[in-house]
Structures are given as structure tokens and as C-alpha cells.
Design a protein around this nucleic acid. Structure first.
Length: 577
RNA sequence: GCUGGUGUAGCUCAAUGGUAGAGCAGCUGAUUUGUAAUCAGCAGGUUGUAGGUUCAAGUCCUAUCACCAGCUCCA
């Protein structure tokens, strides 16, 4: 039965078939592990020579033979000692290492043809049950995911119960490529990067900047509604500030080198928090002022290792939609709940209805007391529970100064990216000696919450582009409506229509080029402009415009008053209705 | 950072070690056009960068930069 489990078993078996093919073709190769994964499988090999594209073809050909031979997968239960001797004899050092960690006295091995693997199983009855497979890529991967270990070669592949399903999957991969934000960023003239500027640094073009401006305005309005105040802070600060905050000790790997200004070291900021703390500390604070909620679209710069940069999704300079909430302990749960609600409202406004929620706990490198960490973690957890969201624990993934809730959204090929984050921080208020005067007239330490709803505008925009495949809803579209006069004689009328749209703050363009209307429509469609208005003599005479919406056909003439009303409603709904 | 791959016109791609080319985009002209591409002409390049091998390098070698995939799924 080709159900989910069946598919996983089949893919795992395909991995074994691949490993057999590899060891038969390249006997010096050592095997390590080869599980089924979300859309296929992989196997990690240790071989001095790299696998090249030609090797892939050879391996695929041998796999086809193995499948044709319909070799049975046989399972035997043997003692750990026997298994040890077996793999010792074959000099499979990775298997021996795995065996060392197994506590049970007996283990299972699976054999098909010449190939033997230490494996929990289960597997298909025989290799002939693999119906359609393809090797996709080869990449390095550290043994056990630890970069201090040797790098192995990982071959990725996928398999299905039918050729049709495989083809469909490969087609899906192609489609994902078309919705890749890097592709669309170029096609739609949204943003670019440049060698001479530097990797991971983004230039926002007018179209992208327009989307960003709309997002920022919406963001600001919603923050005022939710009881936040907006602040601004500088881009650099003295190194000493980062000593006080503790970032220099714990975050230095991600910070850029100091620059000398009049004999003092300054650093470009990787975080906004110390600045907001300094605003807090600029005068004495009363318990009556709390909670204080300060938000800033703060641009930060962080060193990211060259290999991890990825379009807009992983960059070196980015603008966080940052905010810091300073509150009393008795306000903590309420504040976190409010932030969670705000986060979800924000994400839903942009059409993101599916996300993953994680609670990240204490990492190896941390500051503060274990007790405070636990207090903070449980505050976050109870807030998630209250909101009714399902979530997973991400052990050890917290930031050094506190635990956090992360909300991740997915890109076009299913990789998830952290956008929203809510972090409790017991540490910074202490480092900076923050205080408020309580009801009792004595100073108390406030609790700090860091939060970003969208994370960074760059990453959020990247996800947004892929989410909508570049076809932004009306409220976000850089150009909302394009007027397409059929000949020169309708240009005067078109200009009047354009004025009317502008009067209603629509973003409008007129294509008065000397081209056929079909050509203009094609181009407007490729630019993914939501409203195309065709204007010929008929429209001029009847004082209308002919409507054609993105992805649709001719919708006929419509009066301007009616059209503007319709478009305003669409904008208010944000296209999420 | 590491492993592997890729860098040729704005974009997508050609070119046995032997004169760098096409389509689209761009520019100019003609055409005044009714719902996804009107026609013609022109122009476009230190082949990522720096060295090297060779009579000769886009092609081979070395270095370097950038990009792409992966390094998270663990018998």
C-alpha cells in the first residue's frame, strides 16, 4: 500500500540500493548513514575521490540493475559482538562508531545482494519494489553534523511508487524555482545585490522599496494601535557599550571589527537593544510607566559565514522590526500573550496562515542563572498554551541571554525560516543596572522582552515574494493599476483617469507606448500588475474603462466610481478574504 | 567556514585549444493598433578577477572573488 509509511520505507530501501551500487562501483567507499527524508533520501559516504556528475549516471545505472535483479532484503538479528566483528572485518569505521553507542545486546542488519548495513529497518521485501527513483545532488556533510568531524559526501535522491509521481515531483521542483524570490526579485525589478557593494547587502529598487514602504506604514500604524511608541537609534556605538551588554563576550563572532574614531573604538550595531535600554535609563522610571513598549525599524549588521548567505533570506545587513518591552514580573505573561496575538495578526495580514512555532530553550553558551532561565521559559510556554497554538520545543536553540518563542514560515521549497521571535531577557536589565521605582518607593529591576514580528524586513520580504509568487495582493503591489490606451488618441483621456486614481492615492502607471494592446497586456501581466484598464474610443465615448484583472480575461467596461469603490474594498481586505 | 558545482551581452543560453554567436530585452525608424509578443534596421563583450602554460586560451593550470546546492532529519 503506497501510504506515507510505505513511501518512507521504500525511500529508505532506495538509499540502501544506492549504497550497494556505490560500494560495488567504488569498493573503497565507506558507508555511514542513509535515512529517508521529507522528499526522498540520502546516504553519506566517505571516499577520497569526489563523486562527479558522471558518477551519478553510473550509480543510477547500477541501481537500475539492482532493482531489476529484484534482490530480497533480508533481516537478521545478531549479537552486538557479531555485528562488531562483521563491520570490523569490512573496515566500516562509521558503523563501528555507531555500534559503540548502542546499548542493546542484539542489533539488526539488513542484507541485499553484496550489501550489508547496520539498520533498524524496516525495508521492502525486495529491491524490485522500487519503481521510480532519481539521484538529485551531491553535497558535503559533516559526520554527525559536527563541523569538527570529517566531511563526508552526501548523495541526495528521491523515489516514488510510480514514474508519474516522480515526474510530478520533478515538475514541482521546477515550479518552485520559478517562484524563487531571487528569480522574481530580478524579473520584477524588486532588489539586487552587487559584487562591488558586497555579499549579503541589499539594494532595494523602487518596486521593492514601494512594497517595503507599504509594509512599514502598516507596521507603524498597528504599533500605535497596540500601545507602542516609535524610537530611533544610531547605527554605531562605542565598543564599551557592547562590553556592558555582554554582546562582545557572547556575540563577537557575528560582530564586525571596531573602527577608530578619535582614538576610541566604535562598532556597527548588530542589535538595537542597548540603545533602547539607554533611552530607558535617560531618566528615573516609575512603576506607573510600565509596561513601556518601544519599537524601531532598526538596521543592524551581522557577520554571517559566507556559505550561509541566501538571497534576501540570509543577509549581512538587515532591518529588524524590533521592539523592547520593559515590564514588571506581574505583567510578563500578559505582555507575552499580547505580543503573540499581535504576531499572529501581523502574519495573517500578509497571508501567512501556516507556520511553525518553536519554544527554544537554554543553549550551551548562556548568561544568567539557571533559575531565571527556567522562570522565563515557563512564562513563554504558558503564553503559547494560552493562545492554543501547537508548538515544538527546540532544545538549546535559545539566544545566550534568554529563551524565546520563534515562529517560522516556509519558502518555496519548504525550507523554514525564522521570522517572528519573542525573547525574554533577565540579563540585560541587570547588566545595565536598569530600575524603576516601585509602589514601595524602592528600586526594582524591570524585565525585558525583545520581539520582532516580521523578523527582518529583508527576510520577510523574501518569504512574501515566494508566498505570493510575486503576484502581490492589491494593497502591496508596487504598481496597482496600469492604464493601456489603445492608440495615441486616448492618451488625454487616460491621463485624466490616471489623475483620478492618484487623487485616491492609487499607484498608477500609463503605458502610452506605441505598441499593440495585446503587447501591453502581456507585459503588464508579466509584471504581475493586479489591475489593467484598457482604454479605447468606446471607453472614451462612454466615460468608462475596460477592466482586465491579473490572470483573468476581459471583464468589460466599468465606471470609475464603481471601480475605485471596488478596489478600495479589496485594499481594506488586504486580499486575505 | 567546509564539500561539490557554476561564472560568456541587461536576461536565457551557444561556441574540438584556432575570427566570441543567437533569442529576448535595449536603441532608431516605419506602423496607430481592441484583450498575453507588428515589422525592419542598429548597437551591445578585456568571456568574474589576477597570474601562468601555449605559435594561439572562453576552452588547459594556479590563485582569488561571487553565486548555486548541502552541511537540520542520524543503525
Amino acid at each position: 500500500m503506497p501510504d506515507e509509511d510505505g513511501l518512507e520505507i521504500m525511500r529508505h530501501s532506495t538509499a540502501h540500493v544506492m549504497a550497494q551500487a556505490v560500494q560495488e562501483l567504488y569498493p573503497e567507499t565507506k558507508i555511514s548513514i542513509g535515512p529517508a527524508i521529507k522528499d526522498g533520501f540520502y546516504y553519506d559516504f566517505d571516499r577520497d575521490e569526489p563523486f562527479r556528475p558522471e558518477d551519478m549516471e553510473r550509480i543510477e545505472a547500477r541501481m537500475t540493475e539492482i532493482i531489476k535483479a529484484d534482490l530480497p532484503f533480508t533481516c537478521s538479528e545478531i549479537s552486538r559482538k557479531e555485528a562488531y566483528n562483521l563491520f570490523k572485518e569490512r573496515d566500516e569505521k562509521y558503523k563501528l562508531e555507531l555500534l559503540d553507542e548502542i546499548k542493546e545486546d542484539t542489533v539488526t542488519i539488513y542484507i541485499q545482494g553484496s550489501f550489508t548495513d547496520l539498520c533498524r529497518g524496516p525495508h521492502l521485501p525486495s529491491s524490485g519494489k522500487v519503481k521510480a527513483f532519481k539521484l538529485l545532488s551531491v553535497a558535503g556533510s559533516y559526520w554527525r553534523g559536527d563541523e569538527t568531524n570529517k566531511m563526508l559526501q552526501r548523495i541526495y535522491g528521491t523515489s516514488f511508487f510510480s514514474k508519474e509521481e516522480l515526474d510530478e515531483y520533478l515538475k514541482r521542483l521546477e515550479e518552485a524555482k520559478r517562484r524563487d524570490h531571487r528569480r522574481l526579485g530580478k524579473d520584477l525589478d524588486l532588489f539586487s545585490m552587487d559584487d562591488e557593494i558586497g555579499p549579503g547587502l541589499i539594494n532595494w529598487h523602487p518596486n521593492g522599496a514601494m512594497v517595503r514602504a507599504v509594509i512599514e506604514n502598516f507596521w507603524r500604524d498597528e504599533h500605535y494601535k497596540n500601545g507602542y511608541q516609535i524610537v530611533y537609534s544610531p547605527h554605531i556605538a562605542k565598543l564599551n557599550l557592547w562590553h556592558t551588554s555582554g554582546h562582545w563576550d557572547f556575540y563577537r563572532d557575528n560582530m564586525y571589527s571596531p573602527m577608530d574614531i578619535d582614538g576610541t573604538d566604535y562598532i556597527i550595531k548588530p542589535m538595537n537593544c542597548p540603545f533602547h535600554i539607554k533611552i530607558y535609563k535617560s531618566r528615573l522610571r516609575s512603576y506607573r510607566e510600565l509596561p513601556i513598549r518601544w519599537a524601531e525599524l532598526g538596521t543592524v549588521y551581522r557577520y554571517e559565514r559566507s556559505g550561509v548567505l541566501h538571497g534576501l533570506l540570509r543577509v549581512r545587513g538587515f532591518t529588524q522590526d524590533d521592539a523592547h518591552i520593559f515590564c514588571r514580573l506581574d505583567q510578563l505573561n500578559e505582555e507575552i500573550s499580547q505580543v503573540l496575538d499581535f504576531t499572529l495578526y501581523m502574519l495573517r495580514s500578509f497571508g501567512f496562515m501556516e507556520y511553525e512555532v518553536y519554544l527554544s530553550t537554554r543553549p550551551d553558551k548562556y548568561v544568567g542563572s539557571v533559575e531565571n532561565w527556567e522562570k522565563a521559559t515557563s512564562a513563554l510556554e504558558s503564553a503559547i498554551k494560552k493562545s492554543g497554538l501547537s508548538y515544538d520545543i527546540d532544545p538549546g536553540e535559545g539566544v545566550f541571554y534568554g529563551p524565546k518563542i520563534d515562529v517560522k514560515i516556509k519558502d518555496s521549497i519548504g525550507r523554514s525560516w525564522q521570522c517572528s521571535t519573542i525573547q525574554v531577557d533577565f540579563n540585560l536589565p541587570k547588566q545595565f543596572g536598569m530600575a524603576y521605582i516601585g509602589e514601595d518607593g524602592a528600586p526594582h529591576q524591570p524585565i525585558m522582552i525583545h520581539r520582532a514580528l516580521m523578523g527582518s524586513l529583508e527576510r520577510f520580504f523574501g518569504c512574501l515574494i515566494e508566498h505570493y509568487a510575486g503576484a502581490f495582493p492589491l494593497w502591496l503591489s508596487p504598481v496597482q493599476v496600469i492604464l493601456l490606451p489603445i492608440t495615441d488618441s486616448q492618451i488625454v483621456y487616460s491621463n485624466r483617469i490616471a489623475e483620478e486614481f492618484r487623487g485616491h492615492t492609487f499607484r498608477v502607471e500609463t503605458d502610452s507606448r506605441n505598441e499593440k494592446v495585446g503587447f501591453k497586456i502581456r507585459e503588464a501581466q508579466l509584471r504581475k500588475i493586479p489591475y489593467m484598464l484598457i482604454i479605447g474610443d468606446r471607453e472614451v465615448k462612454s466615460n468608462t474603462v475596460s477592466l482586465r484583472k491579473r490572470g483573468e480575461k476581459d471583464l468589460g467596461p466599468i465606471e470609475m466610481g464603481k471601480l475605485i469603490h471596488m478596489m478600495k474594498e479589496e485594499i481594506d481586505s488586504k486580499g486575505t478574504v
